[in-house]
């Protein structure tokens, strides 16, 4: 355990009705870090947060907070606050009282409570809503009350379970920036859950990719994006072309009917592998200049770029390019050695 580890999960196992939901999870979270859990629905993200918050007792394993084992500490004694996935606002209190709840329990002076709550409401764009009942708010507004209610307490660790899920794109981007700013200026550790991989990549210091109650990869956003550990991570983080290949020897891989130079080594010769190529790493060139030739099947405008589906060697390739091509056109595809990522086949 390094010195600035604030939360540490050791071999956490959780079962619901005999069904394993977390399978021996190990994770260290550092102080003031922005950690994001990313993974498909049902993979155990919320459950992991509930372990940290104290709402689920693990069947096996230990939870440490600043080096002390807290397995038996009830939620109300933990220095952690949560933005719940389904808000869980107090229906009998108005917006102001909801946000003030934690501060009142801490018995802060009335005046300080007032300033802090109003400040926080302004931050989440809910100025003037103080006296509204929470049931008279839209989903997105309720979500922002939930964020304010947790954040106003300045906890050491804030757990956020898809906190921006109900917001429209513009507000979501604004809130992402706000949250990141708050996290940095207050020095709070954020443990953040999201489905949105772009959100994970732009906001986090560390991304934890999960699948079926297991951690697939932990790393910086760059690591996760550029060096995915397996095809699942590659596929989940951003769009990818994943094709079967054979690693002939170090730095040489065969796929799509020909040999490619690559930068990977250390595989057994002739090992069956997954080859991952990002859509934006495939260059569109005249047919004679390309490694592979394909037929454009479909073109979609995506704002900044065009997304093309290209049929080549029996595989549908996804290509992102700033230049559009005519449907039905023959194009060449060029793939550089450093754009080819080789992964061991996933054992299913």
């Amino acid at each position: 355990m390094s010195t600035n580890t604030i939360i540490s999960l050791k071999d956490i196992v959780v079962e619901f009705d005999g069904e394993r939901v977390l399978e021996g999870l190990d994770l260290d979270i550092h102080d003031k870090e922005f950690v994001t859990f990313l993974g498909p629905s049902g993979c155990g993200k919320t459950t992991t947060l509930r372990i940290i918050g104290g709402f689920v007792a693990p069947k096996n394993g230990d939870v440490f907070f600043e080096g002390k084992r807290i397995n038996d500490l009830p939620p109300y004694k933990r220095q952690v606050n949560t933005v719940f996935q389904r808000y869980a606002l107090f229906p009998h209190l108005n917006v102001f009282e909801n946000v003030a709840f934690g501060l009142k329990i801490q018995k802060l002076p009335e005046k300080e409570i007032r300033t802090r709550v109003l400040e926080m409401l302004e931050l989440v764009n809910l100025k003037g809503f103080e006296n509204r009942g929470v049931n008279q708010l839209s989903g997105g507004q309720q979500q922002r009350v939930a964020i304010a209610r947790a954040l106003v307490n300045h906890p050491k660790v804030l757990l956020l379970d898809e906190p921006l899920g109900a917001l429209d794109l513009k507000l979501r981007k604004e809130m992402q920036i706000e949250l990141k700013k708050i996290q940095q200026s207050l020095g709070i550790t954020f443990i953040y859950v999201t489905h949105d991989q772009e959100e994970a990549l732009t906001m986090s210091d560390t991304v934890v990719v999960m699948k079926d109650g297991d951690i697939q990869q932990i790393g910086t956003p760059e690591d996760i994006y550029n060096e995915p550990k397996n095809a699942f991570v590659a596929d989940f983080i951003g769009e990818s072309n994943i094709v079967p290949g054979i690693m002939k020897k170090d730095f040489l891989v065969e796929f799509a009917g020909r040999d490619f130079e690559c930068v990977d080594s250390g595989f057994t010769p002739m090992e069956q592998v997954d080859v991952v190529v990002r859509p934006e790493d495939i260059k569109v060139v005249p047919t004679i200049a390309g490694h592979i030739t394909g037929i454009v099947e479909n073109v979609t405008f995506k704002g900044v770029h065009f997304e093309m589906e290209v049929l080549a060697c029996g595989t549908h390739w996804l290509i992102h390019s700033t230049q559009s091509q005519a449907v039905g056109a023959s194009i060449g595809m060029q793939i550089g050695p450093e754009d080819i990522h080789i992964m061991h086949k996933m054992e299913e």
Partner: peptide
């Protein structure tokens, strides 16, 4: 009474009595 609301109160530091 939604259990999640009770959990939210505990999360914000409310003891069982509170």
């Amino acid at each position: 009474i939604d259990n999640r609301v009770i959990e939210a109160a505990q999360d914000l530091g409310a003891s069982p009595l509170k």
